[in-house]
Amino acid sequence: MQEIKLEGSPKTPSVHFDPETGVLELKGRSIPENALDFFHPLNEWLEEYKNNPKKETVVELRLEYFNTSSSKCILDFLRKLEKINGNNTDVKVNWYYEKDDEDMLEAGEDYKAIVDLSFSFVEVDEI
């Protein structure tokens, strides 16, 4: 299975989904007008990955800021991971936020309240 490696753009985060390590990373800002277009291939990738996942799947969400269109797509992405969790893989989500960025921490807590996945909140100096 192929990895996904995308450079970030002014409106979309960088992506690195590695089937060899089970690490799925999104980093940067996600503000496209229609986030569905951007997230669709990522969800497709998950569909394939779930057939032969690593023992542990680590989702690294290092988001600087995101729009509400992305917010819905991130939830759908996490929901897909929720379904995969426990089927030959343990899914862990690391939610990064910059020091004192309560808004981003709160956004992560919102997701934690909705989806049944293990979340860790990681404070960093800079995303």
Binding site: T68, S69, S71, K72, E106, D110
Partner: peptide, 22 residues
């Protein structure tokens, strides 16, 4: 925050990518 969560959780996203959360 509650309204946002409710809409995020139950709301449908349009084909234009509009989530009704703006």
């Amino acid at each position: 925050r509650e309204l946002y969560l409710e809409q995020l959780n139950k709301g449908k996203i349009s084909s234009q990518g509009n989530a009704g959360l703006g």
